[in-house]
Amino acid sequence: MIRVRGLNKWFGEHHVLHDVDLDVARGEVVVVIGPSGSGKSTLCRCLNRLEAADSGEILVDGEPVPAEGRALARLRADVGMVFQSFNLFQHKTVLENVMLAPMKVRGVSRAEAERTAHELLARVGIAEQAGKQPARLSGGQQQRAAIARALAMRPKVMLFDEPTSALDPEMVGEVLDVMTGLAADGMTMVVVTHEMGFARRAADRVVFMDGGRIVETGEPNAFFDSPRTDRARDFLAKVLTH
């Protein structure tokens, strides 16, 4: 579904992605972990070209990601994205947030968009918040609304860029539950996160990044129980001790 080869990205002098190769199969859930600044968010943002890579190729569903314009917009319509800071449209209600893209991008009728939006909001458990402005919702509810908004486009892949990092601890669970449900339904997912419990529970494969490189990748139980590299062992020792 996603194939990345030789991806390099610089921010000025800083080499944030270093010859990254990554494959994500249809229906696979890949969780990307690693310390801050390891390039995992940048990798995620390169996949739908919110960041333009400097070299290397990215294929989504067999097609190279277009550089710009309408072709790029069409690709993004098929690739859902959930952000750390939710990024719900502040001037629209939750329902309108979910309805906008299907109507403007897919040309779906208002009635159908509204019906789908209500279904999706019910699916993520915030049906009763439909008429509110995003700022009136808790962080967890906002993030679930953002997931519903992405799902409304019926994406082939979902990208999650640290979806729970901006949440109060007690709201992390409700968002992870929705994501676990999605994974169980067979959605192809790339999840950048610090939630090791989620990685262990929902991931088909864990990718560990450090210094802009993929250092280790493996099946979650094997990775968490017996990491092969020192760097991964060191990282896990720090995050799993408390």
């Binding site: 919110l50 993004r76 893209a101 953002a146």
Partner: peptide, 14 residues
């Protein structure tokens, strides 16, 4: 915030 435009474009809006 830049995230508003990013979210819109990530949804496939031109």
């Amino acid at each position: 915030s830049a995230g508003q435009g990013e979210a819109a474009r990530a949804l496939g809006l031109t």
